Structures are given as C-alpha cells and as structure tokens.
Amino acid sequence: MSAVVAVVLLVVFAVVAVLLRGSDTGAIFRLSDQIAMMGVGVLLAAASMLFATPRVRADADGIEVRNVLIGRKFGWLDVLGVSFPDGASFARLELPEDEYYGLLAIQAVDRERAVEAVRALRRLHKQAWAGQR
C-alpha cells in the first residue's frame, strides 16, 4: 500500500508541476517553482514509504520491534504477553505496569499470516518463561 501511495503522490505532484507554468492564476511560476513542487512530491513519497519499514524479529532471547522509525529490543522476561485485541489494527506486546508496545508489522489486514505470527511469538514467549522456572 505504501508503494502505491508513493507512486500516486509522485504522479500527482509531477502533473501539478507541469501544469503550474500554464495556469492563469495571476501568479508567475518559474522553473524553480516546478522543481520545488517535484521536490515536495519526492519528499512525501519517501515519507509514505516509511510505513513499509515496520519489522518484528524474535528468537529465544527476545523480540526486536521496529515501527516506522523507532526500534526497540525486549527480553522475553520483560514481556508479559503477546496480544491482538478485538478490533485492533495491529498486535501488541503486553508490558509491566499496564503498558503495551504496538507491533505495526503484524496487522489485522494480513489475516491468517498475522494469526500465525502472533502464535509463533506466543510460543517463543512461553518457551522463554518455561526456561526460567
């Protein structure tokens, strides 16, 4: 979805940049304005591609989560559980003191793939907790 949005943004801003010179608004647009318009389109397209970067990597030691720009690593013993609340858009890690950390890489729109990912994380979490007893 991010790639589609990025392409649409680039096309729209390219069309606006081309049509900018020929508009009869009374304002005078120069080549630099057209270049700036394309630059804005490129920046917005790049920003929309950031939403394609979320990632979750887990192993026996813990889970590494990268949401859009920020990444964190949690040890399994710091995580109380992995949940996917009804109506939620994405899964989350349940943390101590009623806190949670969203897992943007595991989204409801992925359906069965999201279910399998949550089950796999729960297995790893259970194994880590069982190993501590």
Results as ranks from 00 to 15, higher is better:
residue 36 A to K: 03
residue 132 Q to K: 14
residue 32 S to H: 07
residue 126 K to D: 13
residue 12 V to W: 06
residue 95 L to S: 08
residue 71 G to E: 11
residue 100 Y to S: 15
residue 113 R to M: 01
residue 78 D to P: 15
residue 42 V to E: 04
residue 13 F to P: 01
residue 46 A to V: 07
residue 68 V to Y: 09
residue 3 A to E: 03
residue 66 R to I: 11
residue 125 H to Y: 06
residue 105 A to E: 05
residue 124 L to I: 08
residue 93 L to H: 02
residue 32 S to D: 09
residue 49 M to F: 00
residue 96 P to M: 00
residue 100 Y to V: 10
residue 19 L to Q: 15
residue 73 K to I: 09
residue 20 L to S: 10
residue 77 L to S: 15
residue 125 H to M: 02
residue 117 A to S: 14
residue 116 E to R: 15
residue 70 I to T: 10
residue 108 A to T: 11
residue 86 D to Y: 05
residue 2 S to F: 10
residue 70 I to E: 10
residue 73 K to G: 14
residue 19 L to C: 13
residue 51 F to T: 05
residue 13 F to D: 00
residue 49 M to L: 12
residue 15 V to D: 01
residue 74 F to E: 06
residue 38 M to L: 14
residue 59 D to Y: 10
residue 122 R to N: 15
residue 90 F to Y: 10
residue 45 A to C: 11
residue 102 G to L: 09
residue 39 G to H: 05
residue 106 I to H: 03
residue 78 D to E: 15
residue 25 T to F: 02
residue 59 D to E: 10
residue 23 S to M: 09
residue 22 G to D: 10
residue 62 G to A: 03
residue 30 R to G: 02
residue 45 A to G: 10
residue 8 V to A: 14
residue 47 A to C: 03
residue 89 S to Y: 04
residue 76 W to T: 14
residue 41 G to C: 07
residue 10 L to K: 08
residue 42 V to H: 02
residue 130 A to K: 11
residue 119 R to I: 05
residue 133 R to C: 04
residue 116 E to P: 15
residue 101 Y to D: 00
residue 53 T to N: 00
residue 39 G to E: 05
residue 52 A to P: 01
residue 53 T to W: 00
residue 61 D to P: 14
residue 80 L to V: 07
residue 63 I to P: 15
residue 69 L to R: 04
residue 91 A to C: 03
residue 42 V to P: 07
residue 68 V to R: 02
residue 9 L to K: 06
residue 42 V to R: 02
residue 129 W to D: 12
residue 120 A to I: 07
residue 66 R to Y: 09
residue 5 V to N: 05
residue 84 F to L: 01
residue 52 A to D: 04
residue 48 S to P: 03
residue 77 L to P: 13
residue 114 A to F: 06
residue 82 V to R: 07
residue 98 D to Y: 11
residue 88 A to W: 06
residue 60 A to R: 13
residue 83 S to Y: 01
residue 101 Y to E: 00
residue 60 A to G: 14
residue 36 A to F: 08
residue 53 T to C: 00
residue 48 S to M: 00
residue 128 A to G: 03
residue 36 A to V: 11
residue 122 R to D: 11
residue 32 S to K: 08
residue 88 A to S: 15
residue 82 V to C: 07
residue 110 D to A: 12
residue 130 A to F: 04
residue 103 L to Y: 07
residue 35 I to R: 03
residue 131 G to Q: 06
residue 47 A to R: 03
residue 106 I to F: 06
residue 113 R to E: 11
residue 4 V to R: 11
residue 91 A to S: 00
residue 72 R to Y: 05
residue 49 M to C: 04
residue 114 A to R: 09
residue 118 V to S: 05
residue 107 Q to A: 01
residue 7 V to F: 04
